[in-house]
Amino acid sequence: MIKKYTAEILPLNAEKIGTAAHGTATFTIDDVQMKIHIDMFDTLADVQHWEHFHGFPDGKPAEIATVAQDANGDGFVDLPETESVSGTTMVPFNADPAKMHVPNDDYPVADADGHYNYEKLVDLKELQRAFKDAFGSDDLQLDKRVIYIHGVPDTLKLPTTVQGTVMDYDTHVTLPIAVGKIIKA
């Protein structure tokens, strides 16, 4: 049985970063694999964009962050500020999603026009095993997740109040630029 999920990805922090990143994501799952397709436009050009689905390990439905989550009033919705409504980072959409290794340099890079197209076939059983090891359940529950696109150039001046450093990656890498609610098609 084939299950399909989609997300309309909308801009976040657009006024502060100078572009309104947007796009679509589709997830097609059969008994063997998950096909991921993400098509993004108006992202920041020539920048690597981390992308993941976020959610709550207990299965609570995740929602997209909005300006209402700017808890410190600095004008940016940073990664920690998204957690109250979106949960934690779960599965990365990089070179090998099933390894669930979030901090790395294997994410898509936008072209000079701010476009990128990501497509990946993922072994479903391998992903479910890794997901269960990390979150206690092998049920991905995509219809309870949101997708985030991250990343701005390191030349963009961010206030010191913007948080979200992950290991050796600073807030320029983790700043959300777009978000979408994943729904069952």
Rank of each mutant, 00 (worst) to 15 (best):
D30S: 12
V32C: 09
Q33L: 10
Q33S: 15
M34Q: 10
M34T: 12
M34G: 06
M34F: 01
K35G: 08
I38T: 11
I38E: 04
I38F: 06
D39S: 11
D39K: 11
D39P: 02
M40D: 02
F41D: 13
F41G: 00
D42H: 12
D42L: 04
D42P: 01
D42T: 04
D42G: 02
L44C: 12
D46H: 07
D46F: 02
D46C: 08
Q48E: 15
H49K: 08
H49L: 08
W50I: 03
E51P: 01
E51N: 15
H52M: 11
F53Y: 13
H54A: 11
G55M: 01
P57W: 09
D58I: 11
K60I: 09
K60A: 14
P61W: 08
P61G: 05
A62N: 10
A62L: 09
I64A: 08
A65L: 10
A65Y: 08
A65T: 08
V67E: 14
V67P: 01
V67C: 03
V67F: 00
Q69S: 11
D70V: 01
D70W: 03
A71R: 10
A71K: 13
N72Q: 07
G73P: 02
D74F: 03
G75V: 05
G75C: 04
G75P: 06
F76Q: 03
V77Y: 01
P80D: 07
E81T: 05
E81V: 03
E83R: 15
S84D: 14
S86V: 03
